[in-house]
Computed example of a mutant assay.
Amino acid sequence: MTIQLKQKGMNDRRYKYNADGTLRANDLSSSEILLTEVSSGYGSNDASEISFDHYKAMFGMLPMMRTLAQLYDKASFKTFSYVKIHFLHAHGHSIRHWSMSTQAPSIYVMNKEQRVDVAIGFSEKDITLLPFICFFKTLAVS
């Protein structure tokens, strides 16, 4: 995201995207492939905050896609159509995993991949541990 802002000459601190977290791939050096946003505290369902963070992430993933396209500018569009940028959005009692890909030139699609509920009671650990393992294993494979 910062790469795209610098390329546009927007070095001013006003044009900075502050994600709650990003993940970079080892083999892509400076390329971010996952974005995280946490909307308020656990159990909070502030619809305006949830909506804002969701749109904020969407506009954060677009420059991430552009950076990858510029980094691998010799790749075919077919190859690029397999690329996905991921987004983890925590709000309420759940974590949701979204992805963004491009289906055709200038057409980007966000898909809800999966969701896992977050329990806070230690007594529920036996019930909630397996879904968390499956969630993060699926995310890692993605």
Rank of each mutant, 00 (worst) to 15 (best):
M1H: 10
M1F: 09
Q4T: 11
L5N: 08
L5K: 14
L5C: 01
K6L: 06
K6M: 00
Q7P: 00
Q7H: 12
G9S: 02
M10L: 14
M10W: 10
N11I: 12
D12I: 06
R13M: 08
R14Q: 08
Y15V: 05
Y15R: 09
Y17Q: 11
N18Q: 09
A19T: 09
D20H: 07
G21R: 13
T22N: 07
T22D: 10
L23G: 07
L23D: 00
R24I: 08
A25C: 11
N26D: 04
N26A: 02
D27H: 08
S30Q: 10
E32Q: 07
L34K: 02
L34C: 00
L35E: 11
L35S: 04
T36M: 15
V38M: 02
V38E: 04
S39V: 09
N45F: 09
A47M: 06
A47H: 03
E49C: 02
I50D: 13
I50G: 03
F52C: 00
F52I: 10
Y55N: 05
K56N: 02
A57Q: 06
F59K: 05
G60V: 01
M61E: 08
L62G: 06
P63D: 05
M64H: 03
M64I: 08
M64C: 06
M65F: 10
R66D: 02
A69M: 05
A69D: 03
Q70C: 01
Q70W: 03
D73F: 01
K74Q: 06
F77I: 07
F77C: 03
F80P: 01
Y82I: 00
Y82F: 05
K84I: 03
I85C: 04
I85N: 08
I85R: 06
H86N: 11
L88G: 10
H91M: 04
H91L: 09
H93Q: 07
S94H: 15
S94E: 15
R96W: 05
R96C: 01
H97G: 00
H97L: 15
W98E: 13
S99H: 08
S99K: 13
S101Q: 13
Q103K: 06
A104Q: 14
P105I: 11
M110D: 02
M110P: 02
M110V: 11
K112I: 06
E113P: 01
Q114V: 04
V116R: 04
D117I: 12
V118I: 15
A119F: 10
A119M: 06
A119S: 06
G121N: 13
F122M: 12
E124R: 08
E124G: 00
K125E: 12
D126N: 14
I127V: 15
I127S: 14
T128F: 15
T128Q: 14
L129S: 14
L130N: 11
L130G: 00
P131A: 13
P131T: 07
I133Y: 07
I133N: 01
F136E: 03
A140G: 03
S142E: 03
